[in-house]
Amino acid sequence: MRILLVKTSSLGDVVHNLPLVTDLARRVPGATIDWLVEEGFADIPRLHPAVGRIIPVAVRRWRRHLFSAATWHGIAAFRRELRREAYDRVLDSQGLIKSALLGAQARLAPGGQRCGYGREAAREPLAARFYHRGYGIPRNAHAVERNRWLAAAAFDYTPDLPLDYGIAAPPLAADWLPTDRPYAVLLTGTSRADKLWPEDHWQTLMQALTGAGLGLVLPAGSAEERQRATRLAAMVPGALVAPPMAVAQLAGLCAGAALVVGLDTGLTHLAAALGRPTLALFSGSDPSLTGVHAGPGALNLGGAGQPPAPAVVIAAALDLLAS
């Protein structure tokens, strides 16, 4: 059986789709599993050994230059690549009109089907019109489990396997990393201002982690995130701001960390998926549906309108380091 997974973005959503791959590899022996994903996140499915062909799509880039000839050439090339193979099953676990339309471009083998969430379960109900079969997966479950249940329904097996993201990454080898002590990765940037944690809280945590013998590494993406990380690093001697890195390098950075503390952002989910001790700090969203979900070494602290106090975060961090 040849399967195409459609989960294009964002980073956290792509990470949440990984256990579904592990389940399919075990429950559908011999299946070839391909993945359609936004180009900026293609490094994530590459980490899973059961993923075969990765088909990058550039919707985010194309829509910024919709009337460019290069955009239309890119769209045509993408469609040719997508249709190079015929699929027995196309599984859209994104549940958006965008993802459903992308999945509809795939070529089906005789008897092939497109599957996804039913109208009552999809994030955008209209997406269900593009599937041959839609499934009513409960909306009040964690995103990881919803994806796994969807795959189980589409392929007719019981979703009773242990949670397994199925990925690993070699620790990053870089001459700027601390070599005399273990390090913690602090993910201080996020997409929304209400998800931020106060900078004085970060300073208190950083001082405690330094006192526990850890080096501190602060990755940053956008210019605003880099300015924040630079301010924070200046508050604590020895803390350093990581240079700009691709997703694969960031995975290696997290894989080598003794501890990762991050906000509600995709890299925090990636660290948890890699099995690192991870604390996710919530201030503007509810972790019950989209928090880190990877066993006892991954903890969610805080909630919407209830940022965790520094003392709570420090205690949890020290507990993880000691376990």
Results as ranks from 00 to 15, higher is better:
Glu81Asn: 07
Phe78Pro: 00
Glu124Asp: 05
Val37Tyr: 05
Leu47Cys: 07
Ala50Trp: 01
Arg46Thr: 06
His73Pro: 00
His65Cys: 13
Trp72Cys: 11
His73Ile: 07
Arg79Gln: 14
Gln113Phe: 07
Pro49Lys: 08
Arg64Tyr: 11
Ile54Gln: 05
Gly111Arg: 03
Glu124Ala: 06
Ile44Gln: 03
Leu91Gln: 12
Arg61Lys: 14
Val37Gly: 02
Gly116Ser: 08
Ala109Trp: 08
Gly40Lys: 13
Gly118Glu: 02
Val90Gly: 10
Gly116Glu: 04
Arg83Glu: 07
Val59Phe: 10
Trp72Thr: 09
Arg79Asn: 03
Ala58His: 10
Arg123Lys: 12
Phe67Met: 12
Gln105Phe: 15
Ile55Trp: 04
Ala77Asn: 08
Gly103Glu: 00
Arg64Asp: 06
Val90Met: 10
Gly118Arg: 07
Ile55Arg: 03
Phe67Asp: 09
Arg53Trp: 04
His48Leu: 05
Ser68Glu: 14
Ala109Glu: 10
Arg63Leu: 14
Val51His: 04
Val90Ile: 15
Ala106Asn: 12
His73Gly: 06
Arg123Pro: 00
Gly40Met: 06
Arg83Gly: 12
Gly112Tyr: 02
Arg60Gly: 04
Gly52His: 01
Gln105Pro: 02
Leu108Arg: 12
Cys115His: 11
Ile97Asp: 02
His73Glu: 08
Asp34Thr: 12
Leu102Ser: 11
Ile55Thr: 01
Ile55Met: 04
Arg80Met: 06
Gly40Cys: 04
Arg80Ser: 13
Arg79Trp: 11
Arg89Phe: 00
Arg119Met: 15
Pro125Ile: 06
Glu85Phe: 13
Pro110Arg: 14
Gly52Gln: 05
Glu81Ala: 15
Gly52Lys: 01
Gly95Leu: 06
Pro56His: 01
Gly111Asp: 10
Ala76Ile: 05
Gly116Gln: 01
Ile97Val: 15
Leu96Thr: 15
Leu66Gly: 10
Arg107Ser: 09
Val59Pro: 01
Arg83Cys: 13
Gln94Met: 06
Leu101Ile: 15
Ala86Ile: 00
Arg84Ser: 15
Leu36Gln: 13
Val57Met: 07
Ser68Asp: 14
Ala42Met: 06
Pro110Lys: 11
Phe78Gly: 01
Ala109Asn: 10
Arg123Gly: 08
Leu91Phe: 08
Leu126Ser: 10
Ile75Arg: 09
Ile54Ser: 08
Gly74Met: 02
Ala104Asn: 13
Trp35Asn: 03
Gly74Asp: 02
Trp62Glu: 12
Ala50Phe: 03
Phe78Arg: 11
Ile54Cys: 04
Gly103Ile: 08
Arg46Glu: 11
Ile75Val: 15
Trp35Thr: 03
Trp72Glu: 03
Ala109Arg: 13
Pro125Cys: 07
Gln94Cys: 09
Pro56Trp: 00
Glu39Arg: 14
His65Met: 10
Asp43Met: 02
Gly118Thr: 07
Ala128Gly: 09
Arg83Ala: 13
Phe41Trp: 14
Arg53Lys: 13
Trp72Pro: 12
Val37Glu: 02
Ile54Arg: 05
Ile33Phe: 00
Leu47Ala: 10
Ser93Gly: 09
Asp88Cys: 02
Gly112Thr: 00
Ile97Tyr: 01
Pro45Glu: 04
Ala70Pro: 01
Ile75Ala: 13
Arg61Val: 12
Ala122Gly: 05
Leu66Tyr: 05
Ser99Ile: 06
Ala86Pro: 05
Asp43Val: 04
Ile55Cys: 05
